[in-house]
Deep mutational scan, measured.
Amino acid sequence: MFYPNSPQTSPQLTQIPYGQQYAMMQRQIQQPYHPFATTEPQARLYPYHYQGPIQQEQGGFITQQSTAASPQYVQMRVTPVDQSIMSGYPNQTANGSSSSSFNYNIHPQQQQQQQQQQQQLRHHAMPVGSVPLQDDRYRKQLIVNYLAPDVTSTDLHELFSRFGELDGARIIYDKQTNMSKGYGFVYFCHAEDAKEAVERMSGYEFHGKWLKVGYSTNPLNIVPSNSSPYVHAGSRGAAG
């Protein structure tokens, strides 16, 4: 039997160049792979992502010199942007860049009308829970959420009447099932009393439920100042 490094198959040491006398086997001759043993700084910083320098080929596509990437890492192929796409944008300079302001050559009167329309939209648009300043009635009506099913309009009136005089209180019921929808409205005579009720009743436990109280901004629920107070009856038909 002959071994790869046996004296019968191995040459004389004098015939082997210096430095390879003890590297006779194939696994010894093959050098191990060192990912950080390279002179390129990109490979030292990113050993798993770097795959060699990027070269520009004919046709405008950018390719990489090395083989496919590892399945664990996804390499994105980048193509140059066609400058003709950006030619339609206004205020574009000769080098292809555009300024931040756009001039669509709008007539001054049209621009003024658009600004007025935007101001009107901001004036009428009102986020949930906010209180408008032009109508004091919005500051007097509250919406009470997360009410228990057994709470009546009379219970709601008695709960909030300790903060001040009320114009009314009612629970909203479903017309088909005649069941409470879980929320109601309270109408105060003074805005200061309503503000105190919002601050003190939010998070209050009532009939096993934690109440959420806020201003009601729905104009359909506003009680006119010259109208008669609501009837605080315990029956659902009268309260709904």
Rank of each mutant, 00 (worst) to 15 (best):
Q65T: 14
R122A: 08
E199K: 11
H207G: 02
R137L: 02
P53K: 02
P71L: 13
S84Q: 13
M86T: 03
P108E: 12
Y50A: 08
T14L: 11
T14S: 06
G168M: 13
Q120L: 13
S161T: 09
P229D: 03
M126D: 07
V186A: 06
D193H: 07
A233K: 03
Y138D: 02
E57M: 15
R170C: 00
D167G: 02
S161W: 09
A94C: 13
G234I: 01
G234M: 05
T38M: 13
A191G: 05
I85E: 01
S10P: 10
V144T: 02
P149S: 08
K175P: 04
A37E: 03
A69G: 04
Y138F: 03
F188K: 00
E199D: 05
H49D: 08
H49Y: 12
G203I: 00
G182P: 08
A238I: 08
A23S: 07
Q116V: 11
H124A: 11
G88F: 14
Q30M: 02
P35E: 05
R139D: 03
E165I: 11
Y230D: 02
S161P: 12
K181T: 00
P71N: 05
A169W: 06
Y46V: 04
S97D: 13
V128K: 13
M25G: 02
T217Q: 02
T79F: 15
K195Y: 11
Q114N: 09
A191Q: 03
R236Q: 04
M179A: 09
H190G: 03
H157D: 06
Q92D: 06
M126H: 05
Q42M: 03
R170Q: 00
Y50P: 04
S101D: 03
Y146D: 00
P90A: 12
P229M: 04
A233Y: 11
W210R: 04
Q21N: 03
V213E: 00
N178I: 07
L156A: 07
E199N: 13
G164A: 01
Y89K: 02
N221M: 12
M24W: 12
L121M: 06
H207D: 00
Q119N: 13
S225Y: 07
Q65P: 10
I143Q: 00
S98C: 07
Q112S: 09
A37Y: 15
A238D: 12
I143A: 00
L220F: 01
V78H: 13
Q112G: 13
L142E: 01
Q51V: 13
K195W: 14
H34W: 14
H49N: 13
S98Y: 15
Y18C: 07
L159R: 02
Q64Y: 09
P219M: 00
S66I: 12
E192V: 07
G214N: 08
Q112T: 09
H49Q: 09
Y33N: 07
Y73L: 03
F188P: 01
F36Y: 04
N91T: 10
N95Q: 04
P149Y: 07
N105Y: 15
P132K: 04
P32T: 05
Q118W: 14
F188E: 00
S225T: 13
M201K: 00
Q31P: 09
E40I: 13
I172F: 00
Q28A: 10
Q134E: 04
E192W: 11
N105I: 15
P35N: 04
H232C: 07
P219K: 00
G129L: 03
R44V: 15
V151R: 02
S70T: 14
V78P: 05
G240N: 14
D135T: 03
W210A: 02
L211W: 00
V128W: 12
S101C: 11
V231H: 03
A125G: 11
I143E: 00
H207Y: 06
P7C: 09
H123I: 11
I54P: 05
D82Q: 13
Q110W: 14
S101H: 13
G88A: 12
P7G: 07
S235A: 10
C189I: 13
Q64D: 08
Y230G: 05
E165L: 12
F102Y: 12
S161Q: 06
R139M: 10
L133W: 13
Y3N: 07
E57F: 15
Y230T: 09
S161F: 11
I62S: 10
G164L: 00
F36D: 06
P4L: 10
C189F: 06
D135R: 02
I16Y: 14
P17N: 05
V144F: 05
Y89A: 05
W210V: 02
E205D: 04
L156C: 04
R170T: 00
P17W: 09
P41C: 14
T14V: 13
L45A: 12
Q75L: 15
I85R: 05
N145K: 01
L142D: 01
S235I: 02
N105C: 11
P7R: 06
L156E: 05
Q58V: 14
Q26I: 14
A43L: 14
H190F: 05
K195E: 07
E196R: 10
S6Q: 08
A94Y: 13
Y3L: 03
D167N: 03
S99C: 14
H124T: 10
Q28D: 15
Q83M: 15
L159E: 03
M201G: 02
Q176C: 11
V186E: 00
Q30T: 15
G182D: 03
K195N: 10
P53S: 12
Q83L: 12
Q15P: 06
S227C: 08
D135G: 04
I143V: 00
K209V: 00
M25S: 08
L142A: 02
Q92A: 12
T154M: 09
H157L: 05
G214I: 00
R122H: 04
Y173P: 01
E199S: 11
F102P: 06
K140Q: 11
S161Y: 15
N226Q: 05
L133M: 04
D167I: 01
Y33G: 05
G19Q: 11
L142T: 02
K209W: 00
H49L: 14
V144L: 03
S216G: 00
I106K: 04
Y48A: 09
S10E: 05
F206P: 01
Q115W: 15
H232N: 13
G237W: 02
N221Q: 13
L121G: 03
I85H: 10
D150A: 06
M25C: 10
S202G: 06
D136F: 06
H157W: 15
P35D: 05
Q12G: 15
A233N: 04
A191R: 02
K140G: 01
N145I: 00
Q21K: 02
G164D: 02
H107W: 14
Q72I: 15
F160C: 02
Q92Y: 11
R162V: 07
P32W: 12
S216M: 00
G203L: 01
I171H: 03
K175Q: 10
A169V: 04
N95H: 12
G240P: 05
P4Q: 08
M25A: 03
T154C: 09
H232M: 10
S235L: 04
M25N: 05
G237N: 04
P41T: 07
E40L: 10
E192Y: 09
P32N: 04
M179W: 10
V213W: 01
Q26F: 15
R27D: 13
W210F: 06
P229E: 04
A148Q: 04
S161G: 07
K195L: 08
V81C: 10
P47D: 04
H49E: 06
L159G: 04
E196G: 08
Y104G: 04
V213H: 01
N226F: 09
S225D: 05
Q113R: 11
I54C: 09
K140L: 01
E165V: 11
A37R: 10
Y146M: 00
I85M: 10
Q51W: 15
Q28Y: 13
Q111A: 11
L211G: 00
A125V: 14
Y183V: 00
Y46M: 03
Y230F: 13
H124E: 02
G168D: 01
P35Q: 08
S87P: 06
Y3I: 04
L220V: 13
G240T: 07
V131F: 10
Q8D: 10
A69Y: 14
V74N: 02
Q120W: 15
A125P: 12
S97A: 07
N95P: 08
G52H: 11
V223I: 10
A69F: 15
Y48F: 10
H34Y: 13
H34C: 12
Q55E: 08
R162T: 11
V128T: 07
Y46D: 02
E192I: 12
P11K: 08
Y183M: 03
H157V: 07
C189N: 08
P90M: 12
L45G: 04
R200K: 05
K175V: 03
F206V: 02
R122E: 04
G182M: 01
M179N: 15
F61D: 03
M126N: 04
A69K: 08
